[in-house]
């Protein structure tokens, strides 16, 4: 519930061109998994959302796309901000969400709780934005698959134990499965379901 203390901050100052710029970064991120893409747009995100997370939702979400947020964000300024700017419904059931934002370190919900689509409509799956402590400095994972020439490495940090096992299990559902966007600050890494994860220690 928005109260007098909850002031909703501004969204895009130039919606047409800023959303176009942000979308091209998202398209590049998901078509070339593992590349760190920057969303260099001056929008002040609400508390609890990284700038890249906020920009991605501002660009993609609207009244057609239910969003799942952790309860603490849903009832806080982030929920109010998304309701106002996107007109999106905030849902409690992760399986109903078109977009979801999770904290990479929190143990719940598991990736399997979100909608993986079905074999005839795998495009109906949830896109999960995972907010990380950083996009470097963590355990190094090697990625292979469409969009990657040979292989590439990423090392996001601040992810819960077992997170990469969940990602591998999600990849095993291909062509079903959720698509991931790892975000921190103004940067993001796309990790679609088509990407295979190899661990290198």
């Amino acid at each position: 519930m928005a109260t007098n203390e909850t002031l909703i901050g501004a969204g895009f100052s130039d919606p047409v061109f800023q959303s176009q710029t942000a979308f091209r970064a998202l398209l590049a991120a998901l078509s070339e998994p593992g590349q760190v893409c920057e969303l260099a747009i001056a929008v002040e995100p609400p508390a609890g959302l990284a700038r890249a997370t906020a920009l991605a939702l501002l660009t993609l979400a609207d009244y057609e796309t239910p969003i799942w947020l952790p309860a603490s964000l849903r009832d806080g300024p982030a929920g109010a901000w998304l309701r106002f700017h996107c007109g999106a419904t905030l849902v409690e059931d992760p399986a109903r969400a078109a977009f979801a934002v999770i904290d990479g370190a929190s143990p719940e919900p598991k990736l399997a709780a979100f909608n993986p689509g079905d074999d005839q409509f795998p495009d109906r799956s949830t896109t999960v934005i995972v907010q990380c402590a950083a996009l470097a400095g963590g355990e190094t994972m090697t990625l292979e698959g469409p969009g990657i020439a040979g292989s590439c490495a990423i090392a996001p940090s601040g992810l819960r134990p077992g997170f990469w096992d969940e990602v591998a299990a999600n990849g095993a559902l291909y062509p079903c499965g959720v698509d991931l966007i790892l975000s921190h600050g103004a940067h993001l890494i796309g990790l679609p379901r088509s990407t295979q994860i190899q661990e290198t220690r």
Partner: peptide
């Protein structure tokens, strides 16, 4: 949104 799902599959 359709383009991003298309790229993922």
């Amino acid at each position: 949104r359709a383009l991003l799902k298309a790229v993922a599959i």
